[in-house]
Amino acid sequence: MTKKLQSITEKISPALALVAIAAVWAAISGFELVPSYMLPSPVSVARAFVEDFPLLMEHAATTLTEAGIGLAIGIILAFITASLMDRFKLLYNAVYPLMIITQTIPTVAIAPILIMWMGFDMAPKIALIVLTTFFPITVGLLDGYASVDADAVSLLRSMGAGRLRIFFTVKIPSALSHFFAGLKISASYAIVGGVIAEWLGGFEGLGVYMTRVRKAYQFDKMFAVILLIIIISLLLMLAVSLIRKAVMPWERKGVLKK
């Protein structure tokens, strides 16, 4: 009973915090503490969101396509890289430091170069998304492979299992939870990466929409598109959690409780 109550308060408290922030926001803009053209009220943001909804969806479709393709390529590349690195220690030692270094390169810095190389279509956006999503997934998989129980590997070897069988029967399943943790981060990186690349040049996408409304000083629409980006990121993270639950039924709460 108390547990249930606790979980309800746990769920309600962030919602309350959100409402409080919205109330403060509404008060600040309502009393014009900040000029309304700079900080639009929640109501006008909502109105902009509804009015521009079809246009927002069109741009969102482009960004989501880029994110989807980029993420898919990122996952495949990460899977191949991590699996090879796990198999060949030498490759691991050679590549791992390089991967860390590439992570210190800021996304905003490479995006213009990619655009100069690849033009204004989807290609540079997808490339940027691949670059930003690849790392967390690869590291997740590597940690996951390393976390495998050495005794479970011995057990399978004693049953006469070969390397491939051991890889699929114990290594991949033990890497799954790490993989999904990496994927969750990557999913939101993918959207942000896409938007940043679109800012710097393109014809379609939420980033392009953002630069357009920014040039017109339409703050309400700026806020509306930011809101949409947040919503999309959250939905993607939710989707990852749902997929994780479906793929890893043994992790469900009811299963783990005795």
């Binding site: 479970a152 011995s154 057990l155 004693s158 049953m159 399943p173 799954l176 043994w250």
Partner: peptide
Amino acid sequence: PGKISYMLQKDLLLPYKNVLDNTALP
């Protein structure tokens, strides 16, 4: 390996397989 079955010092049932699939694995 593979000729004699070996139960290691801990039970080592794979947590992500149900009991039937664990036992059928060998």
